[in-house]
Amino acid sequence: MSITESTAKRYELQDPDVRLMLEVRDDSAAAFEELMLRYQNRLINLMHHLMGRRDQAEDLAQEVFLRVYRSRKSYKPGSKFSTWLYTIANNVASNARRSMARRKEIQVDGGDDAGMGPANPLDRIAKAASGQMPTRVIDRAEMGEVVRLAMETLNDRQRMAVLLSKFEEMSYADIAVTMGMSVEAIKSLLSRARANLKIALEPYLEQGARPPSE
């Protein structure tokens, strides 16, 4: 889809990160570093929750920045910078998942991540609670693990949409652009994702065991 001059101008005026990226296009190293500092933690967290591994998250975030650098000369603002960046991140994550799936196919057992226990995330959520009394208010670390496992019950698309909506506070329209789907499809995707999360976290909702505040 071609981007009109007026659209490009509008995003340039509205979004300071778009302006930085335009400086990157003109080979400004300082602007690139600034963008990297602004987005590195957000990208790493996104990749971490998408892929489930910290070291891989950093590698993938680097891959995203590398792609940003490589495509700088053809950059034309057709959306917010973050939307463009997360579109790249979504592609990088999809590619990584595909190669991981290929590698798993090669493995004889295709075992789960480092002997994490039961394959079903819902069973693992139950295990994460360590057979404790359900009424016990679990601590933040335990809750983090429970929620992480609940996230594993979602499929890749649902997880991506949830992360973009929750942590990047992106609108349905921006998530739709990022994931190459319609706004209606995103609405449906997010509602299913949140329903799944609700089911996975049901025991903790029932007991009102909310995570302790920061």
Binding site: I44, H49, E58, F65, G144, L205
Partner: peptide, 26 residues
Amino acid sequence: RAWDMLDSLPRVEASDQFVHTTVEMI
């Protein structure tokens, strides 16, 4: 409530070498 519980997902920060290694890659 389920949505709010996502706030307890562990947050990670870029390692000290992240910027350095990324700049090297670039």
